[in-house]
Design a protein around this nucleic acid. Structure first.
Lengths: 348, 348
DNA sequence: GAATCATGAGAAAGCGTTTTCTCAGAGCGT
DNA sequence: ACGCTCTGAGAAAACGCTTTCTCATGATTC
């Protein structure tokens, strides 16, 4: 009877701890002990167990372990759009850093659907030991309500009043001002900002930065144009940009700038001779555009690995809700070839 | 005692099924039943349970469910390099398609370390209901040995003799030949292939395709140059390309082509007037380079979602190892502006 | 009106681990 | 030689859920 049961299990199921125990002639508790090196086990028995495990190619079932240990060795990340190189870079940095500590990452793409974010984050949290929320589009109120339920949580490009949530953010307001300053110092008098997604917090920061810039430079014309966050929206804005008469264009990000570059090229508008264009983010492609893109570099590759470090800190000091660092990174203006002094106008 | 125990659990732990059962005055079995709508439950009791669950914001613990159900609703993907836009696109397509069916994806990046692939894949498989292996660099022998242990498995850009493993692959040999043909028909006589990573199966396919091309075109000069798979390697090959004297360059992929484009531009070599360049993959950026890149388009966005469909098919027909489709996609040559007839030479 | 049946809820087993609890036996001191 | 501690291994509980098994209750049928 018992044998029959065992036989069925052996053929049907994966090899489990019980099979190893049987083969080694010990209890499964002992197998667990030697596999984890937790308690002292007689060397002879340990060797027997290890031999049995090796012969059966036993690998502990992670689900069983997770249930017993109350941890999954997995963290979740939710991003608004996996097609965006910035988020791809963060995901990559996070994944590699986490892997080094034996953690995996589960990924959730909200596809810019704001209402899905909280749900995805909650699901991810339940499956994982923590979650990093990347540039969430949800409202401040919703974020404040959600954050405590997600702990351990790392925020990227958003902050919380809850001091026990570390956040990593880029000072977009500062960066866009520096880019505008760069254009002005080249001699541009008419600027235009091609803005990003409405619900993007980083777009609001850029807007705020430009407001500040305006007050410091009342003489400079600065138009605001609606745009998006990808190639196509940059490309589609070509006409509007040309019509604006601006000579210095601040694109929402590198993707938009690249789309614009392409559109301008098609229309025969020369960059930077006729129009200067700046991006934002310094994605890997930025220095390979023609002309190479002047942009504000954010530490895109470190963001992911730093996010992991902050997550690990929280996981290790389990329970204690110490106040966490809220890092803010200043972008670094990267001057390339897409910006230059404007052509001298016949009549100034 | 019991009360004390419960109280401690309530404060310490997350709310569990037992808490809902207590509150609704039923057994936890009944709670499970109404949550899953499995068996008939008295409507009154069901309502009471649902109310209690809602009030306590009860969400079943996925780890517990996974253990009981023997499935995790998660699939794993292992890629050689998350920085590669092709793999990013596949990951994205997979993730979105899987999410539509309520599955999540766990990601593993082997960082081109061949020896890690099997381990990562095995670990992923143990945690997930299936795994998709993306362009694995391992040897055929190793793949054949690994594949059965991973089932359900979907292979991308590799195939197995095991007929129960579906595979999705692109006919790189065919694509590269068509690109070469395109250059020749424009009038190019001297071609060069900037090859990719040594262990890449798709690179071998291109090499084989070009061998075939050679026999069909004995009059055409075709040089083979060593390269890599990213921007930088393309950029670094600039001098070698110029030195080669070739007028038609077949880059391993779009990334390499873009790096080369950039390098040629810096050197003042005009594309396509002086040299024609082709890429491969048609990554989203390809049509925004200057000039827009002629390339061979692979259905990069569908690959991920199709991979999910194949995975789902296997998961649904659990156990039955029916023979699975081995799809092969013909790339479509996308002629843009980076290729043109070569300049007429003074003396032919 | 008694035997049969359908309904539905609780008890309990099971999923695969880890870990606490328990206890047998060995080693030691007196 | 007796009792003590100590080591180490098995039994059993725990993790949080699903599902089978069991059985009470009330409805149905002749």
């Amino acid at each position: 009877m018992g044998r029959g049961h065992m036989a069925r299990r052996n053929t049907n199921r994966r090899v489990g701890i019980a099979d190893v125990a049987d083969k080694a002639g010990v209890s499964h508790a002992t197998v667990s002990r030697v596999m984890n090196g937790n308690a002292a086990v007689d060397p002879g028995i340990a060797a027997r167990v290890r031999a049995a495990a090796a012969e059966l190619k036993y690998q502990p079932n992670p689900v069983g372990r997770s249930l017993a240990l109350g941890k999954t060795d997995t963290i979740g990340i939710v991003v608004p759009d996996l097609a965006n190189p910035t988020f791809q870079a963060i995901l990559r940095g996070l994944s590699i850093a986490a892997a080094q500590d034996g953690y995996r990452v589960l990924i959730a793409d909200s596809s810019e659907v704001t209402s899905e974010e909280a749900i995805l984050a909650g699901e991810a949290r339940r499956r994982c030991d923590g979650v990093v929320l990347c540039a969430p589009r949800m409202s401040d109120a919703e974020l404040e309500e959600l954050a405590p339920t997600l702990h351990p949580l790392v925020l990227i490009n958003r902050t919380t009043v809850a001091t026990n949530t570390p956040s990593l953010s880029v000072d977009y307001g500062q960066g866009i001002q520096e880019l505008a300053q760069h254009l002005v110092s080249l001699g541009h008098q008419r600027l235009a900002f091609l803005s990003g997604p409405e619900h993007s917090a980083s777009n609001r920061q850029r807007l705020a930065g430009l407001d500040q810039f305006r007050t410091g430079h009342p003489d400079i014309e600065l138009q605001m144009l609606d745009g998006g966050s990808n190639f196509d929206s940059g490309h589609e804005s070509t006409e509007a940009i040309i019509a604006s008469g601006a000579t210095g264009i601040l694109a929402f990000n590198d993707l938009v700038a690249m789309g614009l570059l392409s559109g301008l090229h098609e229309r025969g508008v020369r960059v930077p001779e006729d129009i200067s264009v700046t991006g934002f983010d310094d994605i890997p492609f930025a220095k390979y555009t023609t002309p190479p893109l002047t942009t504000a570099a954010v530490p895109i590759n470190e963001l992911g690995s730093l996010a992991w470090r902050r997550m690990r800190e929280q996981i290790q000091q389990a329970g204690e809700s110490a106040t966490q660092a809220q890092d803010e990174f200043p972008p670094r203006v990267e001057i390339r070839k897409s910006t230059a002094a404007p052509a001298l106008k016949p009549a100034s």
